[in-house]
Design a binder for these strands. Structure first.
Length: 705
DNA sequence: TTCGCAAAGT
């Protein structure tokens, strides 16, 4: 029976007149058209062909190739039920039929169904996995994080020799990367010869995502040696590497390579370029890259916003945000996350709050990254209660959400609350990571839980396969120091095969300062000054310590040393936000228009707290100011001025929030405690390291900071 | 019949 002429575009190159003359099924015009429909995802057109086959009685449940093509059409177009119907109706099936259906499920995100199908394929039709099916199964393992299944596939790939197939190898590398087994991924990468650009790209991207920078650099070097041609994804990956390394030189080289190879109009590559320049501190070049874009989308706008904020061009960022909206590009969750995070590092509390309102108005509050950024913003702005209320309301959370809350509580000295959230995290079956334990260990520090801290370090982390790092060990120093076990802390440092940095030794020195252990403190200071003879913080702490022990010769010696080496401390600065305006105070400052009233207010406050036991601490005298300044320095430390001003300008009962660039000194700390009592105000001071929440005469840090 | 890429962060 001759084929009917279907209602088709006459320009079609297919010969409809004489299909019977064609020998192979593969060349059947209907099959060809179905392939075209699938390739262009044109379901409507494909359905017409399908209907035609049915009407003209050409459709046959025995024609495997034709049915596979049909199956592929529905699978590609995301019509899983249609694909499944075709599959179920086939009397004869081959590996391709199974593979096509599985690819459909994979694409729609039904990874476990893919694994089920692969089992059925072996069991029901007694077929073996080929390179296509194995790749699809591996991708499903990657998508669902099914590490063990993925490893079984690896064994099968080795045994069957399919591992030498490019796609299988790429899928394996990808599986290991997605299951966070960097070593496994690198093993396949290094062990099997013959890599293509996809392998490099997917491995590089995955390594960057997991922060394995040295391995990423390794892969990058091999990519250069391999002399394979880069595609867009290679540029994106390599630029991402430059951004993480903050390697401007390498980034510029990649830029010129990109210009030569004609990838300069690729949107993805250009966004990565803006990001790279932003992260490398080259805001001018980031701006230039953004300016030369032919089209802008929400990603490129967000990238330039982030670049501005990272480089502290705050006003420009606000201007750009406005421009973006007038340009008709709507901000999305990433844009809001960028803005929130910068208002957190700025501690622009009022801006953060107004952003929150805006976000709720446009309905972006349910995105995890936005929730995370809100938790972070409120916590960093000193409002841990609001941070928690956002956290509690979040519908979905990721490890960052939990970590932000745990470390937020820890920074605020709320160890008990931090550990409660940690327990909730475990109960929610979220896997803690490297960062989680930094927060957990510092919470143990606040609570003085030495044994528990060591248990987390030695057992819990080990069980979870998390290798402790310098930050964890430094938490342990803090933990021992806080518990007053300074000799133990020092022994721990001297016996562990850890490359301690200045921060770790300063943690010990600080503990000695608080616990008044002159002996260990001097030894710690000696080590630090060997590492960096000009470490300002240590010189000051050391001189304070001498003063505490009334070793005035030591104080004089330190002062002399600092003068000789021209070690200048940063001037003490405090700021507070009142009705959207930020007021900055410098110790002993009389340039503020209301400085007379402010100083009067400070004197009043100090007189008020004197009966409660406030005694000026001479050891703190030089904390906030240079020695040469002939001011009543103790009285007019910057945080005292800020507190006094906030008390003058805010309604009774309103909490007071102050940020200070240095550590708060003993004197201001005890004054703030008593002021919170006599004025019945909540006072939150964020200093260089901690949050101090003063309430009714007590500080959240329990006088240890 | 299969795969990878951009903006946020603790």
């Amino acid at each position: 029976m001759p084929a009917q002429k279907p209602p088709l575009d006459p320009r079609s190159v297919i010969n409809w007149q004489a299909p019977w003359r064609l020998k192979s099924n593969h060349d059947h015009p209907a099959v060809k058209l179905l392939k075209i429909s699938a390739g262009t995802k044109n379901l409507k057109f494909g359905k017409i062909i399908h209907a035609h086959l049915l009407v003209s009685n050409q459709a046959s449940e025995n024609n495997v190739v034709e049915n596979n093509t049909l199956l592929n059409l529905y699978a590609k177009c995301g019509q899983l039920s249609g694909a499944q119907r075709v599959f179920d109706g086939m009397r004869m099936r081959n590996v391709v039929s199974w593979g096509t259906l599985m690819a459909g499920y994979l694409h729609a995100g039904f990874c476990s169904e893919v694994l089920e199908l692969s089992r059925d394929m072996v069991k029901v039709d007694n077929l073996r996995l080929n390179k296509y099916v194995l790749s699809t199964v591996l991708s499903s393992c990657a998508g669902d994080g099914l590490y063990c299944k993925g490893q079984q596939c690896h064994v099968y790939a080795e045994k069957s020799g399919l591992i030498f197939n490019q796609h299988v190898k790429n899928a394996l590398v990808c599986m290991y990367s997605m299951c966070e087994d960097v070593e496994g991924a690198m093993k396949v990468f290094n062990g099997v010869p013959g890599l293509d650009v996809f392998t490099y790209n997917s491995l590089l991207t995955a390594l960057l995502e997991h922060g394995s920078l040295s391995e990423a650099l390794d892969v990058f070097r091999k990519l250069l040696e391999a002399d394979v041609e880069w595609d867009g994804a290679s540029y994106v990956g390599v630029l991402g590497l430059c951004a993480c390394l903050k390697d401007l030189k390498l980034g510029s080289q990649v830029h010129s390579r990109m210009l030569k190879s004609g990838f300069n109009s690729d949107m993805f590559v250009n966004c990565a370029m803006i990001d790279m320049y932003g992260k490398c501190g080259e805001i001018t070049k980031a701006r230039k890259a953004f300016g030369s874009l032919k089209a802008r989308n929400v990603v490129s706008w967000t990238a330039i916003l982030a670049a501005c904020l990272q480089n502290e061009c705050f006003e420009e960022a606000l201007k750009l945000f406005f421009e973006m909206e007038t340009d008709g590009v709507r901000p999305n969750e990433y844009t809001f996350a960028v803005l929130l995070n910068s208002s957190a590092s700025l501690s622009a509390a009022a801006y953060g709050t107004s952003l929150h309102a805006h976000i709720e108005k446009v309905g972006y509050e349910d995105f995890v990254i936005v929730g995370n950024a809100l938790v972070n913003m409120y916590s960093r702005n000193g409002d841990i209660e609001l941070a928690y209320s956002v956290f509690a309301k979040m519908r979905s959370r990721d490890p960052i959400t939990w970590n932000s809350m745990i470390s937020g509580y820890s920074h605020h000295g709320l160890g008990k609350e931090a550990l409660t959230v940690f327990r909730d995290m475990l109960a929610a079956e979220e896997k803690p990571n490297y960062v989680t334990f930094i927060g957990v260990l510092s919470a143990c520090g606040h609570l003085g839980l030495v044994e528990q801290g060591f248990y987390y370090l030695n057992h819990s982390m080990n069980m979870l396969g998390i290798e402790p790092g310098l930050e964890h060990y430094t938490c342990i120093i803090g933990l021992l120091g806080k518990a007053g076990q300074l000799d133990e802390a020092e022994n721990f440092m001297r016996s562990m095969p850890v490359k301690w940095d200045i921060v770790a030794w300063r943690t010990l020195l600080n503990a000695c300062h608080v616990q008044r252990n002159y002996r260990v403190g001097m030894r710690a200071a000696e080590v630090i000054l060997q590492m960096d003879p000009n470490d300002v913080g240590t010189c000051i702490l050391l001189s304070n310590m001498h003063a505490k022990f009334k070793r005035w010769d030591g104080v004089v010696k330190m002062r002399k040393l600092m003068r000789e080496r021209n070690i200048k401390k940063e001037p003490g600065l405090s700021w507070t936000e009142i009705r959207n305006n930020t007021h900055i105070f410098i110790a002993g400052d009389n340039k503020h228009p209301e400085s007379v009233q402010i100083q009067k207010k400070v004197r009043e406050l100090l007189a008020e707290i004197k009966p409660l036991g406030y005694v000026p601490d001479p050891a703190s005298a030089l904390h906030d100011v240079e020695e040469e300044q002939k001011v009543d320095y103790l009285t007019f430390h910057s945080e005292k001025l800020a507190i006094a001003y906030a008390l003058m300008k805010t309604p009774p009962n309103a909490p007071i929030r102050v940020i200070k660039n240095l550590r708060i000194c003993d004197d201001c700390h005890s004054a703030a405690k008593l002021i919170s009592k006599v004025t019945n105000r909540l006072i939150v001071i964020r200093d260089a390291n901690h949050f101090h929440t003063f309430r009714n005469g007590i500080c959240s840090c329990a006088d240890y900071w």
